[in-house]
Structure formats: C-alpha cells, structure tokens
Design a protein around this nucleic acid. Structure first.
Length: 431
RNA sequence: GCGGGUGUAGCUCAGUUGGUUAGAGCGCCAGAUUGUGGCUUUGGAGGUCGCCGGUUCAAAUCCGGUCACUCGCCCCA
C-alpha cells in the first residue's frame, strides 16, 4: 500500500498490539516469579558459534534462517534465533556454574529468516525460562508446571494440549536413530521428497511428517520408546508422575521431536488448534549437553520458550490505560466570559488546572487535559477518552473559588471548592 | 525455498460483458448547538484502484512482471 513499509516479516507494535505483548510478558514474568525465576537479558546478537554449535550445524535454523553478519571489526555475529544458547553462554561467562541451581526468565526479540505467516514473523518475540543445574525429573515437571500456569493465566490453556515425549539420553537416542535410519532406508524411494532429505539431515523429524504416505510408513517403524535405556525411561516416568500429581494433563506423543540438536530426555509442546499451522504456542525440553557443547562445564538444564505473538493472538483483549479524569480549562479564546490571567492576583485558569492535574497525577490517577477547543469539543474529547468524570474550570468558577465536577454517566454537575479539589477528585477513583 | 489466494478511501468492503465525474458503511472534520459529550441531522475532506510494463479508441476490470499480505508445505515459538 504505502511505499514506506517495515521490512518483510517485521511489524510495528502500535499501542493496541503492544498491550497484547505487554500482557503476555507481564503474565509470564509474574508466574516465573512465583516459581523463583528471576528476569535476565542477554545480547540480541552473539558470536555465530554460540548458536551454530549447540543448535546443530545442519539444522535449518542455523543453515538457512539466521541473520548473520561480519561487524566492522571482522567478528562473525548472528542475531539470536532463540534464547537458550545465549542464556547458557551467559551462565558460563558469569561463572555461575559454581552456584547452581540458577533459574532465569527472559523475554525479547528473536530473528529467523523465514517465510512469514500468521504467528510467524522474521522478528518475533519470545518469553522463556531456563532452570540450570538439576538433573532431577522434578526440574522438568516444575518448568512444565510454570508453563501451564502462565497459559492458564492467559486464558489459553483450555484450548491447548500438552504433548510430552522423551528423546532419551545420548546413548538411547543414537541407538534409536541408527535403527530408524536403517528401517527407513529400505523404503527410501517411497518417502516424500522432504523426508528423503530429512533422512540425511534430521531423521527424527520424519516422525512428524505431515505427508499421508510417510505417516503410513512410519506406523511400522521402530518406536523411540522401545530404545530408551533404563535411566532414560525412568526419567520420563518420573516426570509423568509429577505431572499426574499436579493434575496437569498431557498426551504421550511418541512422534514429538525437537528441531534443535541440544535437546535430550524430556521434550514437550503446548499445541493449540486455533492458529492453523503455527499451533505450537510453547515448546521446550531438557538440554543437558548444551553447556559442554559451548565449551563450558557439564551443566544440566531444562526450559522452554513461548511465542509472544502467538499468545497475544490467542489471549484476546489486553488491559489498556485506566479511564482518565479530564480537566477542561475555559479561557476567553474558547468561550469564557472574562479574562483568565488572575486579575485578582491569583493564578491563571490554565496554571490552576495544570497544578491540580499534577497533584492528582502524583496520586497515580491518569489525568488528561485537552489542549484546545471550546467546551463542546473538549467534552467530546473527554467522552472518547472514556472519562467518567470531568472537571471544568472557567472564569466564573475561578471567581467563586470552585471547579465544576461533571459526571459523564448521568450528566449531573456539582461545585467543588478549588482548595479541596485534588483530594476530592483523587477519591473518586478509589474503588 | 515451493504451491494456492488476495491487493480499490484511515478501517471493512462493493464496483455488471473493459466505457467517460470510482461508491457504501464505519471513522475523521465542520455546522445545526459561540459554557455542555453520547443520540439525531446537514455538509465536507480523503483514492495516481499496490507498483511497473503490455493489449485496446478506451483498463480498477484483460495479459506479463514485481512487491506486500494471506493459506498450505518446509521449519519452528
């Protein structure tokens, strides 16, 4: 439409959009706080290696979707495509691996060069939590419970299903991977084009192929669950046990896999049917090997990230500004019947009103002062702002030392003594 | 990266087999009401029909390209 548009896959967050984002972020932060997760932030760009190694050199996110560049000093940098790698890097950088566990909440923009769709942007926003240190299944359950609480507070949990699976530890996973590749290689030519490619790059991904023929072939494939070693299946069972105890419903989804290489054991996604193809609203899992991959000590971790845009789309109306008190000044130029600059030595009407507004604002109440217009126009403005009460001050009232308080609902007006106006107006909004 | 759909006023959309001044509702501005909002009523502003090119006496309408949005695939939050 206009020639001046934001780059593809980006969007301006105008107040009504921002209100939705803010609501999601505030809700996430407060839920995280209840669980003891404190907010932190990492840079929006990192050395490219921070993402390339842990996410998988061959993963799509790294090979085709990053915004990477060389800065003026010759450093290879990448705009973060996700949050976990940066958080773990920061943990190591700060030496916090000595004082575990650590619980972090974060929020901010991520960048992936993808074809935009509803709920999928090139610059998008995530909220996320990371619990670093514990290997216990309790940690997995705690993190999932936190996610469920947030979704519930946002009113979207009811339309989501929690899918849960175990990818097993490294040993289990590579054993299964070998078995799966062996099985699928025999029927390779029958697989869809995409899946034939995935057989090379990320065979586990074939499990959640949407191709009907693929699905039939997969039905007879070896199951991941059968390849879990004792430690892995025990871990999974204990996570499930905790969720049961907490009354959190889930679906054991043997086909649920993760796109990023660093995941092991628990993998989970909250999926909705209300967003078309972009149904995953919150996803995460355990990533015990990540810290070591980055070159740090062996630190276990589990966490998730949720898409702010997607949650905002689902969670409906977000709170906006409170209704204001509107103060209207009438000066000669807009209809008053005498001058305003304090012939009796007092303050002008504008100044009186401005001082009053400041006092009430200091009490935390929103006050709006229309900048111009006659009384009718200013009242119209007040109505549009959603004001319940309006204060009107003209030369008449100033001379009598009062201000008119108008109730916009029933149209009634009363005089309030000017020297008691601040207190009176403030109490109007305390209910 | 691949395939389908859609681009007309600030917003939601009409616009006939190509035909002369491109419309509606909502919103916006102003008047009726120069110290009283909503409701009503009257009037007004606002469009190079996404952009570029082609066909034609004539293009919002047909054709090609391009950009954007959108749905699906891919990928993922």
């Amino acid at each position: 439409m206009s020639k001046l548009q934001s780059p593809r896959g980006t969007q301006d967050l105008m107040p009504e959009d921002m209100a939705g984002h803010r609501h999601v972020m505030d809700t996430a932060k407060s839920c995280a706080g209840v669980f003891g997760f404190e907010e932190m932030a990492t840079p929006i760009f990192e050395f490219t290696d921070v993402f390339a190694r842990p996410l998988g050199e061959s993963s799509d996110v790294v090979t085709k979707e990053t915004y990477s560049f060389t800065d003026r000093g010759g450093e290879g940098l990448t705009l973060r495509p996700e949050g976990t790698a940066g958080v773990v890097r920061a943990l190591i950088s700060a030496g916090l691996t000595q004082t575990l566990p650590q619980k972090f909440y974060y929020q901010g923009p991520m960048f992936r060069y993808e074809r935009p769709q509803k709920g999928r942007m090139r610059q998008f926003h995530q909220v996320g939590v990371e619990l670093l240190g514990p290997t216990s299944p309790l940690a997995d359950a705690e993190v999932i419970a936190l996610g469920a609480m947030m979704l519930d507070r946002l009113g979207v949990l009811a339309s989501c299903a929690l899918h849960l699976n175990s990818l097993g530890d490294g040993e289990s996973r590579s054993a299964y991977r070998t078995a799966l590749v062996e099985f699928l290689s025999d029927v390779k030519t029958e697989l869809s084009e995409d899946s034939q490619r995935r057989l090379e790059t990320n065979p586990l991904r074939i499990l959640d192929s949407k191709d009907e023929n693929d699905r039939q072939l997969i039905a007879d494939a070896p199951k991941l669950g059968e390849y879990l070693n004792a430690a892995s299946s025990d871990h999974f069972n204990r996570v499930a046990e905790q969720l049961d105890a907490a009354g959190i419903a889930y679906i054991h989804d043997a086909k649920l896999v993760r796109g990023l290489d660093y995941y092991c054991h628990t993998a989970f996604e909250f999926i909705t049917t209300d967003l078309g193809a972009q149904g995953t609203v919150l996803g995460g899992g355990r990533y015990d090997g990540l810290a070591e991959t980055l070159g740090g000590p062996n630190v276990a971790g589990v966490g998730w990230a949720a898409g702010v845009e997607r949650l905002a789309l689902l969670s409906g109306q977000a709170p906006r500004l409170d209704p204001p008190l509107v103060l209207i000044a009438l000066s000669p130029s807009n209809g008053a019947d005498s001058n305003t600059d304090g012939a009796d030595g007092g303050m002008s009407i504008d100044a009186t009103l401005f001082a009053l507004a400041n006092t009430i604002r200091n009490h935390g109440q929103r006050v709006e002062m229309p900048f111009s217009g006659n009384l009718g126009k200013q009242l119209k403005r007040a109505d549009k702002l959603g004001a319940r009460y309006v204060g009107i001050l003209g030369a008449d009232e100033a001379a009598r030392g009062v201000i008119v308080l108008r109730d916009m609902q029933d149209g009634s007006q009363t005089d309030i003594a000017l020297d008691q106006a601040a207190e009176h107006f403030s109490t109007l909004f305390q209910s």
